[in-house]
Design a protein around this nucleic acid. Structure first.
Lengths: 334, 334
DNA sequence: CTGAAAGCGCTTACAG
DNA sequence: CTGAAAGCGCTTACAG
């Protein structure tokens, strides 16, 4: 910049203003500056301007994992909007570990991003680290899907209650007598909502709801498979399994294959899932598919609104986008 | 920092050095500084230090898409190493468009990341933008999988030739007479390598290799399905299809389902793929699975070596990690 | 072992 | 319309 200024016999201030297209600068000067900048392929230093302006044009995305269709599609949605708005996206993976989640937030406190979009790991049930982060950093923060149930943050969710309800009703319509709901890890917001929908549908079908209808799994596939194995070889195996996540549905398929339990004849399966190959599985898997891309997009949209308007303190909006129920062979009654 | 300095009756320089654990500072002073910093929850401004040091502790990852098991697993590998090394990761998606690729690189020229890891989009056949980027930015740049065939850059690849050769030999061992190789979009490095392996195996089995054995597809699923449809309903449909990417294999399954073509009896299918559900498809899909996580890890390892040693100009190393051939039902002979 | 000073490369309030 | 000056918050070569 100094170089440009010298060569053009202008001050650094004028050059800076010209490059920022300031109304203070004459058209002629602007043109001279821009031309020379082009000639020298001059690029302003973003750290200097970030330092000066206190804005980085970076946003952070914190997700449990990226090798998961839901989160990778959501990230795609976020990226799309960020690119449009001229923001760069920093990605942090927590690998479903709350201690990682905490260290990422600690790190972000000093990293001067302009805002954060986050989906919690499934073990996260307490939110002190979120609140601490908020009071320390005062950064705009938007949750999506696995949200913190704190009023102070805007969030993008899907209709977990209704879709779980509908999926369970569908199972009963397919002559299911005793359905089981499998969920991972912890009694977090999402599982609670889905569980409510499941429970209400069970009750609506005249059954007495008991704890046997709900089984908690883990993050470890092998353990989950042995849980499912025990369940399917028990005295009273269920007619149907409804899983909270894709991975569990895959585990159910694997164990059913091993045990030669026929899906859907002996066991119906439905799951929350964004698997692209759901329709190609043997048998094709009935799914509740979350609008991942749109959820990411909406979360980004909210975040940028907050960043630009600086009105984030009271913007505790909630956006809910409906999931879609895809009924396939895994829940078909003969 | 000024605040700390004042309260401790020290200079800003001393405080800065104390926080950086400089050998110049006495243990006692260090302790006082660190304690007060903790009390005030002081966080240094990374832009200021980046500006001063000319290092950002950011790396950029440029990939065609994230909603793809190969790339998301590779990203996971990169992230893992970056976290270890204390780097933050900026992610850029090109959506398989070379013009996006160019604008990302243009943008990175000014964004002062410390290094770049990149996998090209499939249409990218010319590398001027890569060379321009290199001469403009002089940033360490590592390629993985979809590499630029330029000697000046280190790269992490897999044994495309050998695995394509083996997969094709396997097809012949399953009584295949006329196999076809489907690839997407462009005649890039990867497709060339795989094609060579395919071709050599075909010739080794006594066939005369002709262009009919190779069909170019697109990025558009619908068009690909119609190409596959035409192929399977042609006068002489192939006994087997070998696809360069997962999506094409899925398209083959979809079309075969529509046409009631039985896999593997009438048509054998094998594909490069990192699909987790390959073994649950109907029928289970034989795959060549690339070591995605490890490739990402190795690419990151090379990048950090270059960043730390600043010897990147002549480090045109090539790391190759073998893929694994998973033989499943889609290539089984009766 | 500590500190004063320069400087990283910008932006902006202010003066003219 | 242009420019001088201060300052964003650090780090580091240098002096003592």
């Amino acid at each position: 910049m100094m170089k440009l200024a010298k060569e053009l016999n202008l001050s650094v201030s004028t050059v800076s203003k010209a490059l920022l297209d300031s109304y203070e600068i004459s058209a002629a000067t602007k043109q001279r500056v821009i031309e020379l900048a082009k000639k020298y392929n001059y690029k302003p230093n973003p750290f200097a301007s970030s330092l000066r302006k206190g804005k980085s044009k970076f946003i952070a995305v914190i997700i449990p994992e990226v090798n998961n269709n839901f989160f990778s599609m959501a990230m795609d949605g976020i990226q799309t909007l960020a690119t449009e708005k001229g923001y760069d996206v920093l990605v942090y993976l927590t690998h479903e570990s709350q201690s990682n989640e905490i260290s990422v937030l600690d790190h972000l406190e000093i990293s001067h991003v302009d805002g954060v979009i986050m989906s919690l790991c499934s073990q996260t049930l307490s939110f002190e680290h979120i609140e601490n982060f908020n009071t320390e950093s005062h950064l705009p923060l938007v949750f999506f899907d696995r949200i913190a149930t704190l009023d102070s943050f805007p969030r993008v969710i899907t209709n977990n209650y209704e879709s779980a309800f509908q999926a369970t009703m569908h199972l009963f319509s397919q002559k299911v007598k005793s359905p089981i709901y499998l969920y991972t890890s912890e009694w977090n917001y999402i599982n609670k909502e889905r569980h409510r929908g499941f429970k209400d549908a069970v009750i609506q079908n005249g059954l007495t709801f008991t704890d046997d209808f709900v089984i908690k799994c883990t993050e470890d596939s092998e353990i989950n498979k042995s849980i499912i194995h025990d369940l399917l070889t028990s005295e009273k195996p269920p007619d149907a399994i409804f899983t909270s996540i894709e991975k569990l549905a895959i585990n159910v398929y694997e164990v059913a294959n091993e045990l030669k339990v026929k899906i859907p004849d002996q066991l119906k399966v439905i799951s929350f899932s964004n698997l692209r190959t759901a329709s190609l599985l043997a048998p094709s898997l009935s799914t509740i598919t979350q609008p991942a891309f749109e959820m990411g997009e909406q979360a980004a949209k909210m975040l940028f609104k907050m960043i630009e308007k600086k009105s984030y303190k009271n913007s505790n909006d909630i956006i809910s986008i409906d999931s879609i129920l895809y009924l396939r062979d895994s829940t078909k009654s003969n």
